[in-house]
Design a protein around this nucleic acid. Sequence first.
RNA 1: GGUGCGGUAGCCAAGUGGUAAGGCCGAGCUCUGCAAAAGCUCUAUCCGGCGGUUCGAUUCCGCCCCGCACCUCCA
Length: 460
Amino acid sequence: MPIRLHDSMTRSVRELKPAHDDGVFRFYNCGPTVYAPAHIGNFRTFVVNDVIRRLLELEFGPGKVKHVRNLTDVDDKTIKRARDAGRPLADVTRQWTAKFHADCLALNCLRPHVEPTATDHIREQVDMIDVLLCKRHAYRTPDGSVYFRVSSFQEYGELSHLQERELRLGSALAGKPQPADADEKEDGSDFALWKAWKPEDGDVKWPGPDSAAAGRPGWHIECSAMSKKHLGDNIDLHTGGEDLLFPHHENEIAQSECCNGVTFANHWYHSKHLLVDGKKMSKSLGNLYTLDDLTAKGFSPMAVRYALLAGHPSKQLNFTLDSLHAAESALETLRKYKAELMFNLGKDAAGFAAVQQALHDDLNTPAALGALFSIVNRGAKNVDPNSFEAAMWALGFDLAKTNAPKSEAPAGVIALAAKRWAAKQAKDFTAADALRRELTAAGWSMLDRKDGYSLEPLKH
RNA sequence: GGUGCGGUAGCCAAGUGGUAAGGCCGAGCUCUGCAAAAGCUCUAUCCGGCGGUUCGAUUCCGCCCCGCACCUCCA
């Protein structure tokens, strides 16, 4: 069953297929900048891309997909972070890379086959810049920086569908302060390939392209260089969040195609942003969540994954704490269904085919979840457990990870619970009820069973 | 100003030219000292508004209202 996915370049839904003779599907996903913990908006993109990766493997075979996702470990933000903390750049980026990996693991995202970093590919970036200089697609400025000459690339703006007029005088620009390098550039839409060292960069610098100053690469060039190195000049799919469409991906196309002379990517996919409570996430609104923020509230990472997949990746998704509660409950239902399946081995192998069918149809994750529960609601009889497992794998749900980690109850709460249990055994229900109210006030719920009880924190 | 996306039940969210998936919440019942869990059942005469096309539109077209995003380094 072919995978069909929206293509930002043609603005149409097209089939994904490897274009190269070796049959390996070349997949590049723009990764995070490692200067702080990623927020759930970032993770929407990475979880969606993880589902794409899984579908590709199911379709073409595990050995026939090469998934590359970069780590941006040198840019204004990382440098500022290191400078403010008085720590070496590599130290800071190592810390946040580790955090990113831990979060991805918790969200059950498969590791990309290659995770290149910008600082490990300075040579490759410089080489590309040299070629662009040589071909007159780039020029040096007096301070030793290098810029890409946008006017030298006819197709510029094709992906974002921005016309030259809009690129130059978008009114959003009108009120904004001009970038510091505005005077240096031949044209306002030119962008930096190489940034000459400045005092605030501290010890962050590398030898530059031919006759340019020492400094560091511009942001866009890293993806062009790493994509070229690990996947070749022409790749099958390039993805990222919607904000990357312009200018990042537009610039990547310009650099790569001017350098390599061939089409950069055959297919582009951009997932839409996450909103929280109907608004764009921002620190000032207090609605910016990291994974840790949510697990601290008692939610499981798997519920976060579920909630992130509950909306169509091509549409903005409104994330709320209520949606996390819904996700947690839904996963619990799946866990019980799975347990039931184990005692009810059926043979209907096609059982959950509808789930993958929905995913193959432009990554319709909400429809896939709908199909999933429609089948689950029919009961476990006759269903082949392998079919269920395949659906879980495609969505990346690890049901063993469903339950939120149980917090340890404080000693006072444990004592109250013990007292209540004793009162209950003595059939002193008045006292037992009073103690239950005390436990509730303390933020805990006591769950009775025939032979004992357990304690759970109340969710808020 | 330019470029896009969207407005479907209390919340989240699919979808279709022929009459509304799914999840959550809620309600009722069974069970149960209480609470929870579990099981069963129910929950949009209607898809932002107004026109148009059509035998028929939530689904196509036009206009309007509202929300969101991008427009040079935010996934």
